[in-house]
């Protein structure tokens, strides 16, 4: 039997008795092509027009790289993880410590960060089976905070100063060119995550994840192996988020727990999720909007920005709580609507 088979409107994959259909629907491609085109052109425009904004673009591209896995985790486990930045810390410290102490390059530390994410994800994944609702939220909220304390207790993490001297991922003499290449790297990572999320949300696994999200007991009774789906939905995104930590470490050449593990970083992640709205592209939009607001506040509000940022976020949260910014687009393009996945516990 053929592994890949082309049919009139779809590609059929077969692997060890499991069959996947990938519908080819060019009439729905236009918004995606436009979106990707805009994202690829933006760094080039910024490079020539206003290079300092390249850093904002990179930050804006990396934020969805955390939020997209968080969405997968949220739907697939039926539980709200309030501490996804824990895995940013796992990936970042793994990359940083291995680079500094063992002189390993970014290629090896990428694998190590992913492996560390996988391992910690597996260690903490039973939480998805044992705890639900508010208990799961509290437990996951505590994870990054405990990790933060650990980084202060053990000198190897260098407390609030953090690790420094981590080799850069891209290191050409021209700083602006480096920023441009980082922007493309971050964009590529984001687009990979976007594709993974988008494909998953249209797959058989998304249906099982949504069923778990709505009522895991009923899903279990209908043949969904909920333990397997929940653990996979926790561990897979954990690896994805750890890789973002690896990128932060090799992008800045430094990694500090005080930057990524506190709740302020978590707030940015959730704001990107809420302000963007439903759907994978909405999260991308949310990531850029939140990063831009933060940068503009730092630029124009100075010392007041730490106070103004949460206030503005709160205001946006109240305004866009239902559909997010992307809801404005959906009103005109209702065919793009995706099923609503809600958290029941």
């Amino acid at each position: 039997m053929k592994v890949i088979e082309w049919e009139r409107d779809r590609i059929v994959f077969r692997f060890f008795g499991v069959k996947w259909d990938w519908a080819i629907e060019p009439r729905y491609w236009r918004p995606h092509i436009i979106g990707i085109g805009i994202l690829f052109v933006t760094p080039i425009v910024l490079y020539f027009v206003y290079p300092p904004l390249l850093a904002t673009f990179i930050e804006g591209s990396l934020l969805p790289c955390i939020v997209l896995p968080v969405i997968l985790m949220l739907i697939g486990t039926g539980r709200f993880n309030f501490g996804p930045q824990f895995f940013v810390g796992v990936g970042g410290f793994t990359a940083g410590l291995l680079s500094i102490h063992f002189g390993l390059g970014p290629g090896i530390t990428l694998l190590a960060a992913a492996a560390a994410g996988l391992l910690t994800g597996l260690i903490f994944s039973p939480l998805t089976l044992l705890a639900g609702g508010i208990y799961f939220a509290l437990l996951t909220l505590l994870l990054p905070l405990i990790f933060l304390e650990i980084t202060f207790v053990f000198d190897i993490f260098k407390g609030d100063t953090g690790l420094s001297g981590i080799p850069f991922l891209i290191n050409f003499p021209n700083f602006t060119l480096n920023q441009l290449l980082y922007a493309f790297f971050a964009l590529a990572l984001m687009l990979i995550y976007l594709t993974i999320t988008d494909r998953l949300l249209r797959s058989r696994y998304a249906l099982q994840m949504a069923a778990i999200n709505d009522d895991e007991e009923v899903a279990n009774g209908l043949g969904v192996n909920i333990s397997r789906i929940k653990i996979a939905s926790f561990v897979g995104p954990a690896v994805m988020i750890s890789i973002v930590g690896w990128f932060y470490a090799h992008y800045f050449g430094a990694f500090s727990s005080i930057t990524y593990l506190p709740m302020t970083f978590m707030m940015k992640v959730f704001m990107a999720l809420v302000i963007g709205g439903r759907g994978a592209w909405a999260i991308v939009l949310g990531g850029y909007v939140v990063t831009l607001i933060e940068v503009l506040l730092i630029r124009f509000a100075g010392n007041l920005s730490p106070i103004l940022f949460p206030i503005i976020m709160l205001a946006l949260l109240l305004i866009f709580r239902e559909e997010g910014l992307f809801g404005l687009y959906r009103k005109r393009h209702y065919r793009d609507y995706k099923p609503h996945f809600k958290i029941t516990k």
Binding site: V18, K19, W20, D21, L222, G223
Partner: peptide
């Protein structure tokens, strides 16, 4: 999709 053997059964 899930209530029986998934062999050779796609979402479509």
């Amino acid at each position: 999709l899930c209530g029986k053997d998934m062999t050779e059964r796609s979402l479509m």
